[in-house]
Write a protein that binds this DNA or RNA. Structure first.
Lengths: 210, 210
DNA sequence: TTCCAATGTGAATGATGCTTCATATATTAA
DNA sequence: TTAATATATGAAGCATCATTCACATTGGAA
């Protein structure tokens, strides 16, 4: 299923001159716009090129085929998301665990919701691709960052950080994504996110020696 | 985006004779097999008909177009899933809240993993469709069932059942799905699911009057 | 300025696949 | 048995698109 040849998902050439970077950015931007507007089943190479103001051939200078374009777009997105999470983690070194979990929830929620349509469009676009490598890279970066953060907590030390860490990020990211995709009414959304922080704190309390 | 005309996603005709039911089942089964094997971008009407042992025209007797076939397939899947969850809820009336949350986690996890490839294939197939109505129906059924269950708990009464209920199912389903999609190694999977029950219990404990 | 590498072009190619409809067969009720 | 209804057929029509490649243009190093 999905795309068989992983290598072919990689970009064809890397821009060396400034104008090439401009071109690639234009192509990415055009792709996003078209994905948001029409979804992936109406994303054609011709339309992407047209909207980007380049010719189809140019697109093929950088991407072996349509799929690799969509793949690269999602790669960019996940890299940016990982960046944000890493920053949040760095900013909360030495904080309380409660502040840490709250910060993770907020950061992830904001990243998802500040451009809702883009988030949804990208998520849908990648469904038919084999994006496991992207997910793995993302998960690995996040894992490392949150682990270091939790280890630095000022109000707790853990017997088994990696277990607690994996649990917390799986629960937090899974729940936030679920809230996002369920399209809950705003009061419900806020309620669940608030309860989620309560739940994380209650969980962490069970590890406290009194 | 996605499919604009919602009505067109509905089946075209409903089977009245036995052979028609057989035909539809064959079409659904063929679709699942092809989705698992090749993914949606290689799902063609001709191939579906061929594998189902009918002609293309027959498929169009029941489905207005390819999308409505995929839509109906997911509708079936979600209905079956809701059935299972409702049964679990009925079987746990009057139980402890702890038993309830554990049962929900187990049921959902089993449903996802007993035919992993089918779960993944279906999930991917629906990405480009507007399946919000399906999600809403599913969420509404589950919500009702779990709410009734939690209200019947033998070891707790709630001030605000609907809030606790929404939180629990959002966290549980979100987390389980996240575990499933992350492809964690089995020991990690088991660990996170165990920690999740601990977390839910710790959360519920905060509502107990001591 | 010269020349090579980088970048950009887009008409043409080749292939795929959805959907229809005129027609045939099967089932059921009367 | 007959007529009405349900079900099944599949070749043909029509449209869409991904991708290539021979060629043009631009940038920058020497």
């Amino acid at each position: 299923m999905a795309i068989s040849n992983h290598n072919s998902l990689k970009p064809r050439r890397t821009p060396r001159q400034a104008r090439a970077t401009v071109t690639m950015d234009a192509i990415f931007e055009a792709t996003i716009q078209l994905l948001v507007a029409d979804g992936i089943h109406r994303l054609t190479t011709t339309r992407v090129a047209e909207r980007a103001g380049v010719s189809v051939g140019t697109m093929y200078q950088y991407f072996a085929h349509k799929e690799s374009l969509v793949y690269a777009l999602n790669e960019r997105y996940l890299a940016a998301l990982a960046d944000r999470i890493e920053i949040t983690c760095r900013n909360h070194r030495g904080a309380t665990v409660s502040a840490m979990t709250e910060a993770l929830i907020t950061t992830y929620w904001q990243a998802k919701t500040e451009r809702i349509e883009v988030t949804k469009a990208l998520y849908r676009s990648v469904a038919e691709l084999d994006n496991q490598p992207l997910i793995d890279t993302f998960a690995s970066r996040v894992n490392r960052a949150t682990m270091v953060m939790f280890e630095s907590a000022s109000d707790m030390t853990f017997q088994d950080v990696s277990s607690v860490n994996l649990t917390l990020i799986t629960v937090i990211f899974g729940t936030v994504r679920n809230v996002f995709e369920q399209n809950l009414a705003p009061p419900h959304t806020e309620s669940v996110l608030r309860q989620l922080t309560i739940m994380c704190n209650a969980y962490l309390d069970t590890f406290r020696t009194r």
